[in-house]
Simulated assay, not measured.
Amino acid sequence: MMTYVRQWGAAVLAAGAALTLGSGPVPATAAPGTPQPYWGTDSPQHPIALVKSGSSGPVTFGITRAGDLPSHVDKLTLTVYSPELMRLADPKVTPVGKAPGGWSCRMYDGMTPVEHNGRHMVCTARYSGPPPAKEWHWKVNIAAPAELSAGTRSANGWASLRLHSPGHGSGTWWDSNAMTLEARTPVAGATP
């Protein structure tokens, strides 16, 4: 009986230690391929983009560098979700300023691949160079349904950027904090 109690106690202590070790942030010396803690500060478009009902228009989003990043990255992945009442008009991401371009995107409505009016898209770029020195911004085209009322704000759209740094084995991924995408339809009678 005493042996069973000791074995059970050792198992409980080992499980507790594993939970404690697994609950904190990933240390900078994490094994290759292990995602690092989130980096960056949201840099949304101000003022909020205006998109007329029944049409589409550009919405800008971005990330400001915050925290330590590797000196060189060799792959980028960008995931973009449309604002809740609108859709992504097409599977294109356009760089603004010095942000990397050359994105190849797949758009989806739920799990179904689509060419237009998707809810989210996943994009990749074969960028090789330094991470953002200060900020990177991009824009996507957002479509507003024709039935959307004037002055309706469509929020909760977001994007996330993953930077891959080469290294031993499979390298390491660095995930950004969320970047905000939102838009609204113009108020009736107002000029944008």
Results as ranks from 00 to 15, higher is better:
residue 138 W to K: 03
residue 40 G to Y: 02
residue 51 V to A: 02
residue 118 G to T: 01
residue 152 T to Y: 09
residue 53 S to H: 02
residue 152 T to N: 09
residue 53 S to I: 02
residue 183 A to K: 05
residue 11 A to F: 07
residue 111 M to G: 10
residue 100 P to Q: 10
residue 98 K to S: 15
residue 7 Q to S: 12
residue 36 Q to R: 15
residue 106 R to A: 13
residue 21 L to G: 15
residue 50 L to M: 08
residue 77 T to F: 08
residue 90 D to N: 15
residue 109 D to C: 09
residue 86 M to I: 04
residue 8 W to I: 11
residue 155 A to P: 00
residue 6 R to L: 15
residue 120 H to I: 02
residue 65 R to K: 13
residue 140 V to M: 01
residue 52 K to W: 08
residue 12 V to K: 02
residue 112 T to S: 13
residue 190 A to D: 14
residue 166 P to M: 12
residue 189 G to M: 11
residue 50 L to F: 04
residue 107 M to F: 03
residue 163 L to I: 05
residue 57 G to M: 00
residue 49 A to Y: 01
residue 93 V to W: 01
residue 20 T to K: 06
residue 80 V to L: 03
residue 93 V to P: 00
residue 137 H to R: 15
residue 28 A to E: 14
residue 126 R to Q: 13
residue 65 R to S: 12
residue 189 G to C: 01
residue 37 P to R: 00
residue 146 A to V: 10
residue 150 A to W: 06
residue 28 A to D: 15
residue 57 G to Q: 07
residue 95 P to N: 01
residue 182 E to S: 15
residue 95 P to W: 09
residue 123 C to P: 13
residue 69 L to G: 02
residue 77 T to G: 05
residue 120 H to K: 11
residue 27 P to V: 04
residue 175 D to H: 12
residue 123 C to K: 13
residue 52 K to G: 06
residue 120 H to E: 11
residue 56 S to C: 11
residue 188 A to F: 13
residue 100 P to K: 11
residue 170 S to E: 12
residue 103 W to S: 04
residue 186 P to S: 06
residue 103 W to T: 04
residue 80 V to H: 11
residue 7 Q to A: 14
residue 122 V to I: 15
residue 106 R to T: 15
residue 110 G to H: 07
residue 151 G to N: 10
residue 61 F to S: 09
residue 88 L to S: 09
